[in-house]
């Protein structure tokens, strides 16, 4: 699924990663627990999370996750954007709850990791 489609299905705003907007993800994973994210061994995953701090970006960096959708209207800090840009990540934010965002994406064909 393309970034543009994720944005349409969840009414998400693109926060950073404009140059990577053609990037595609093959599956989605929703979690607020970073140790669960670090257990993923799949590539090209969209992380859907309500945990919005610098460690979310660090975790994504280590777990090779390059697209993150923040739910529940979380505010992304300049430090997070800076670290995300260094790692060429796409950050998006939606007002949807995690349940709704994951549901919409699943209904529209984004596969689960497992």
């Amino acid at each position: 699924m393309k970034i543009q489609q994720i944005r349409e299905f969840t009414e998400a705003a693109l926060v950073c990663g404009e140059t990577n907007r053609e990037k595609e993800v093959l599956s989605g994973f929703a979690s607020d627990l970073m140790s669960d994210v670090l257990r993923l061994d799949t590539g090209d995953v969209l992380l859907i999370t309500g945990l919005c701090n610098l460690q979310t970006i660090r975790t994504a960096e280590m777990a090779e996750v390059s697209c993150i959708l923040f739910v529940r209207g979380k505010k992304i800090t300049p430090e997070m954007i800076e670290l995300a840009n260094e790692n060429r990540m796409v950050l998006m934010t939606t007002e949807y709850s995690m349940f709704r965002a994951a549901g919409e994406l699943y209904l529209n064909g984004l596969a689960p990791v497992y």
Binding site: L33, D36, L38, L51, Q55, T56
Partner: peptide, 16 residues
Amino acid sequence: RQMGFGAGMGLPNMKK
């Protein structure tokens, strides 16, 4: 826990 950790998975994840 607020930072997204503290679920008792750190050491098991390291070992894995």
